[in-house]
Amino acid sequence: MSGDRGGLLIVCLGNICRSPVVAEVVRHRFAAAGRSLVVESCGTGGWHVGHRADARMREAAREAGYDLSGHRARQIEAGDFQRFDRVLGMDLANLRDLTARCPPALRDKLGLFLPTAGVEGVVEVPDPYYGGPEDFRYVVALAERGADGLLARLGG
């Protein structure tokens, strides 16, 4: 992944909570380490296309030093599987949806974010949408662990 042109696509359900913050944290951590990596996010569903990130996630991200103000949700497109080198879901349901949509020849690009990043003890990034502020802060913390894990795996 370190030298790949297409970079990383981070995917959750609606692209308003988990995937935008993970993408922003990964971009931020890589830039801080002097590394360049194309990172985008999207959702498997289209309910929130064009919407900003959830206000609670924007607040949790802001508290941790990340800016989601420019984010606008989008849904995954067929061309994304070709365009990106890795397409990583936040949870097993996202991965099932991605697998169903992805051409069989490109399925080796699919995975889960946390295991791909080498984070141990947690497989899925939980959806905080129906939770409280602590759930959103937990997702930011998992994003940081995952971003640091990707950097370590890529020799950052």
Rank of each mutant, 00 (worst) to 15 (best):
V38E: 08
L37K: 08
M90Y: 09
G3N: 13
R58I: 12
W47Y: 15
A23T: 02
S36K: 12
G7N: 05
F30Y: 14
Y66M: 06
A64C: 02
G70S: 08
G14A: 13
G89R: 10
T44M: 01
R74K: 12
R5T: 15
E63K: 12
V49D: 13
E77W: 09
H71Q: 06
R56S: 13
V25S: 07
V22G: 06
C12W: 04
A55C: 00
G46R: 08
L9I: 11
L88M: 05
D4F: 10
V49L: 02
V11G: 02
C42Y: 00
A53W: 09
Q82D: 14
C42E: 12
V21F: 04
E40R: 13
L68P: 04
D97E: 14
L68F: 09
V21M: 03
G70H: 01
G70T: 07
G45M: 13
R27A: 03
F81H: 04
G3T: 14
A33P: 13
E40L: 01
L9N: 09
M57R: 05
N94A: 05
E77T: 11
E40A: 07
I10K: 03
G50P: 03
A100K: 14
D91W: 09
S2W: 12
V26A: 00
A78N: 05
L88C: 01
F81D: 06
H51W: 11
L98Y: 10
G70L: 03
G65Y: 00
D97V: 03
A93K: 14
Q82N: 11
C12Q: 01
I10S: 07
L37N: 12
I76M: 11
G46T: 04
A100V: 15
T44G: 03
C17Q: 09
V87P: 04
R35M: 11
C17K: 10
G43L: 06
A33N: 11
H48E: 14
L88Y: 09
L98N: 11
I76R: 04
L9S: 03
D54S: 06
V11T: 07
L9H: 06
F84Q: 07
S2P: 13
R62I: 04
G89C: 04
